[in-house]
Amino acid sequence: MKENIIEIKDVQLHYGNHHALKSINLSVSKCEILAFIGPSGCGKSSLLRCINRMNDLIDGCRVRGKVVIEGFGDIYGKGIDINNLRKNVGMVFQKPNVFPMSIFDNIAFGPRTHGIKKKKDLDPIVEDSLKKAGIWQEVKDDLKKSAISLSGGQQQRICIARALAVQPKILLMDEPTSSLDPISTAIIEDLCENLKINYTIVIVTHNMQQATRISDKTAFFLNGEILEFGETTQIFSNPKNEKCEKYITGRFG
């Protein structure tokens, strides 16, 4: 039994008056892929963003409850160094958001933020991250090239490499392949399989086939609650919750 790296206890989230997350309880084990599935607008991304406190950026967002991450304790408690938290909990967004800089600068941005300035220290990190993201072969000849001149799939992989460069323990992915073509999607899904060895991945996805392909565990969200949580194979073959079953079989969503 793997130990838990994230424990979410009784988390409630409000956007102004809208009660977006109602009493969420969840545990994430180390080095596994957990998928959040469910219809649009039911809180998947919101919960994901709670884990690295990205919801702090949104005005009027209030979070109650505890999110305990290994090595930090309750990240909503006092005295938490947010920047350090985000260093350890990386995020990949739905739309690739490479900075308008060179590929090298994109990857090096994270390490530079956290104190690594010298080129001789940065070079191996950049190379390593790009290799882990599976894009090293394609870009190694011209790292000075502007990152925005790459294709969508390549950009997303750069984003992944950028997130990996700061050596996080956890990687949060918010629908990372929804704006990509099938080939890029396949590449990134393969990537996740490889990354799972060293990182814990939580992925939000609309694509149930993707969830079945890559995740170990799945959580089904509806209207701000987790209605079902368990092994992926078990949920998709034999869901216990009625609504979950309806969603999976495509009767709504």
Binding site: M54, L57, N83, M91, N97, V98, F109, T113
Partner: peptide, 21 residues
């Protein structure tokens, strides 16, 4: 906004995000 989010998600402070990105 996604640029700001991307930078913040990497652990950069607001100042760094503003001035570097």
């Amino acid at each position: 906004h996604i640029y700001r989010e991307g930078s913040v998600a990497l652990g950069a402070s607001k100042v760094r995000t503003t001035f570097k990105v």
